[in-house]
Design a protein around this nucleic acid. Structure first.
Lengths: 263, 263
DNA sequence: CAGCGGGCATTGTCCAGTCAATGCGAATGG
DNA sequence: CCATTCGCATTGACTGGACAATGCCCGCTG
C-alpha cells in the first residue's frame, strides 16, 4: 500500500508552515495569524493540536497571543546595550545603527527605580568578591525604564564596610556616578571582568521586566577591580534579549590572531 | 463564603512547586522528577494539565524529558567563550574559573567541520560589509565539536575578490589562522565591532547544534576592519547558552565613568 | 554465558468536548 | 452626542479518554 508516511506530527507542520511564512515576510511583524479555528479547518485537526503548534512558536519568541484578539507576529525593537562606554573615543560603525540610535534619543523618557539594602552575599557575589561568610554587602538595585516600560535590571554589590554612610547607600540617582563615589572612597576601579550568561529568565525576572514568553535574557556580571587587583564591586545586569543588542568594540594591539573562540 | 480563591491555575502550581524544589536543591541536577502519573495523583488533575506544567519547565530549560524514562533536572556544564584572546596579556581572575578551565583541557577532544562556499550576501553581511547587490562573498562555515558534541557555529564571510584562490577557500584548518591569511593578502584586521543578540534558536540551529528545548543562543556578530576602517570580514558565531559563558576583560584608560548601560 | 526478543512503564501525539476570561464593537439609553 | 452595557469572537484552563513510540529489563534460547 502506498501509505504516505507523513511522519512529521501535525502540530509540527502547523508550526513549521507558520514559521516559514514569518521568515519569508509573508507574515510581517505585527500582523495577525489565523485563528485557532481557521487552523483547525486548514489542517483537519483538533484545537488541542493546532494550539500545540502555536505554543511552539510562542516559546520560540516568534509570536504572541493577545487574548481574545488572536495571535500576532512579534515585533522587536532592540536597543543598544553597551558594556563599555569608555571605548567610545573612536566612533564605531555607527551608521549601522543610525536608525536604532535615532529611536533611542527621540522622545523616549528614561527613568529608574533605585533601592538600597544590606544583604548577605550569595554564591555569585561571594566568589567574585572573595568574601568570607560573615561579611555583609551593600546592595544597590536599580530597575531602569524607558517610557515606563522596564528595560533592564542593574544590581550592584560592594562590601558594606567600604561604602557605609556614603552616597552609595542613598536610594537616589548619583550624578557623578557610583564608580566615582568608590574612587573618592579610595577604591578607583580600573579593571573589569565581564561574564555573560545566556538563559531563560527566572519567574521573578519575568514579572520584574514584564517579559513575554520565549524571551531569553543575558545575565551580564561585571566584577570591577582596583589597580592592585582587589575586587571591589560586582554588578549583575539582567538584559532582556528582545529589547537589546549588546555592542562593544575592540582594537588589536598585537599581530592579529584567530578571532572567535578558537583554541 | 470563604471560597478560597486559588486563582493560580493548576499547571502553574505544578510548575512553580517543581521549580522551587529544583532551585532549593531538593531536586539536584540529574535527578528524576515524578512521573506524569504521580503528578496527576498529587494534584488531582488530568494528564493534560500536569503535562502543561512540565512543558513550562522544559521551555525554561530547567528540565528535560527522556522518553520513556521520565523527566530529569537538567545538568549544564558551561565552557568559557572568549571573544578576545588578545586581551589575555594580563591574566584575568582565573581562579574563579579554575575548575571550568581544568575541564576544558582535560581529555576533551576538539574537532571541527569546515565547509567553504560562494554565496550571495544576506542583509546582515551586506549591511556590515557595505556591499552592493551583485558582489559575491566567500563563506567559510565551521561547526566546532568537543568530544563529538557540537559546541558552536562559526561562519565567516569575506568579499570573494579578496580571497579567491587563497587559503581562505580551502576547507581545512589553517594553522596560522585565517586572519593571518587576510593580513598577508594586504588586509590586516586591527579593529572589531562586536554585536551580541540573545534569542531563541532557529530550527536549523537546533538540529545543527543538537540543542534541547528551552535553550537560547547568543548570536555574536564580529565585523572586523582594517586600519583605515574598511570592513573586511563578518563572522557570525552561534553560541548555545547552556554550553557557554561569554567572558571578556576591560581596562579603563580614563577616569572611571558609570558602568553598565546608564545614559 | 552471550545474544535476542518480548513485556512494560513512560512519554508523545491526538481526539472531542466544556466552561471561563477578556477586550472590542455594536446596540442601547440618557 | 456621549457613556454604558452587553453580545461575541477568541484564547485560556481543563476533563477523560485512545493509541503510538521507545528504551530498559528480564527471561528465554543457543
Amino acid at each position: 500500500m502506498s501509505r504516505m508516511r507523513t511522519n512529521t506530527p501535525i502540530y509540527q507542520r502547523v508550526a513549521d508552515d507558520l514559521r516559514a511564512e514569518i521568515a519569508d515576510g509573508t507574515r510581517p511583524p505585527g500582523s495577525q495569524l489565523p485563528t485557532e479555528a481557521e487552523l483547525q479547518e486548514k489542517y483537519g485537526a483538533t484545537r488541542y493540536t493546532v494550539r500545540q503548534g502555536l505554543a511552539a512558536l510562542v516559546n520560540e519568541g516568534l509570536i504572541v497571543s493577545r487574548r481574545p484578539l488572536g495571535y500576532f507576529v512579534r515585533e522587536i525593537h532592540p536597543m543598544i546595550y553597551r558594556p563599555q562606554q569608555e571605548f567610545r573615543r573612536k566612533q564605531p560603525d555607527l551608521d549601522l545603527f543610525a536608525q536604532l540610535l535615532a529611536d533611542e534619543g527621540n522622545g523616549r523618557q528614561p527613568s529608574q527605580d533605585i533601592e538600597v539594602a544590606i544583604v548577605q552575599p550569595n554564591a555569585t557575589t561571594r566568589d567574585r568578591l572573595k568574601l568570607n561568610e560573615s561579611e555583609l554587602l551593600a546592595a544597590r538595585r536599580r530597575t531602569r525604564y524607558i517610557d515606563g516600560e522596564p528595560y533592564n535590571i542593574n544590581d550592584s554589590y560592594v562590601r558594606l564596610s567600604f561604602v557605609q554612610d556614603s552616597e552609595f547607600m542613598s536610594p537616589v540617582d548619583v550624578a557623578r556616578g557610583t564608580n566615582q563615589v568608590l574612587a573618592d572612597l579610595g577604591k578607583p576601579l580600573v579593571r573589569a571582568l565581564d561574564e555573560i550568561y545566556v538563559r531563560m529568565p527566572k519567574p521573578e525576572e519575568v514579572t520584574r521586566l514584564k517579559l513575554g514568553p520565549g524571551t531569553p535574557v543575558a545575565e551580564h556580571i561585571v566584577t570591577t577591580y582596583t589597580f592592585d587587583d582587589e575586587p571591589v564591586q560586582v554588578t549583575i545586569n539582567i538584559v532582556p534579549g528582545d529589547r537589546h543588542v549588546i555592542v562593544f568594540e575592540r582594537t588589536r594591539e598585537w599581530p592579529p590572531t584567530e578571532q572567535g573562540a578558537s583554541e
